[in-house]
Design a protein around this nucleic acid. Sequence first.
DNA 1: GATAAAGTATGATAAATATCATATTTCGGA
DNA 2: TCCGAAATATGATATTTATCATACTTTATC
Lengths: 145, 145
Amino acid sequence: MLSNSSKYALTAVLFLAANTDEHQKKMVKDLSISTGIPKAYLAKLLQQLSKHQIISATKGPKGGYYLTDDNRNLPVFSLIEVIDGTHRMETCVLGIEECNAERPCPLHDHVYPARRAFLDTLKKMTIGELSRDLKNGSSFLTAQQ
Amino acid sequence: MLSNSSKYALTAVLFLAANTDEHQKKMVKDLSISTGIPKAYLAKLLQQLSKHQIISATKGPKGGYYLTDDNRNLPVFSLIEVIDGTHRMETCVLGIEECNAERPCPLHDHVYPARRAFLDTLKKMTIGELSRDLKNGSSFLTAQQ
DNA sequence: GATAAAGTATGATAAATATCATATTTCGGA
DNA sequence: TCCGAAATATGATATTTATCATACTTTATC
């Protein structure tokens, strides 16, 4: 469903959402340690996201990555769009390009409603909203210590 | 969700379900043409499925692949299990190994019900059942001619 | 039984994805 | 104003996945 890259990206961004702001930034190294995502790989992902203004960054000492309120108000899907593009999420389960409601594949009707609901969630829900549970301790990004 | 390989495999098997039996077999070459799946790649997939008795085959002239009633009564999931293994379908959207209802990732509650429903469908529904729509013309594996 | 038509087994190549490395740019602080 | 700490840009390597090729085995038919 999601590529490995966007799993990593989303994990890191949710971590940023819960743990940073304009005055509290995190550098790649620390993010890598906190999330368990390989540092250099994570760095590339964050660069892409930063270039597309999904997340914010400042260079130099005391710099790092962080999320502004604007960033937090972006739908989760916008991040996935940058990393995976839009096609991957919307394509047929069997990979049949012409599959649609009028000419469905054998799995279409069994999958489409659930997939639609998931996509809608990703498009409606913002990064900030999704990170709320994380902040108040009712969801988690890492294993228990 | 499904790997490319199991998409191909499922497509081919559904085609077999709708178009073969003990007396009407299909050889790889024709399957490849009908489904648009690369011949040599498809051959490998069918060999795996045949070895695990998900589909049936006879060698030699007049031979080919086909489905028996026993094959048709297998749940769709059994095929995916052979090709992708069981882990891929059941793992967390964010790839967090320890994610579960008690300690959910931020997406868990938004995804889990839909995923559960899809998995249940794959485990309950048989290959024969899923191919029924194909036979009566209400679902399709290929583009319109 | 010889022949040819099929699947079977195995391995090689190609493409995509994940991962690592390194040089460059920007910027805060002594 | 210079040094070092950070992101940024770019490219190299490794791993996985997809694809192709080829030699081998089985079996129906003549």
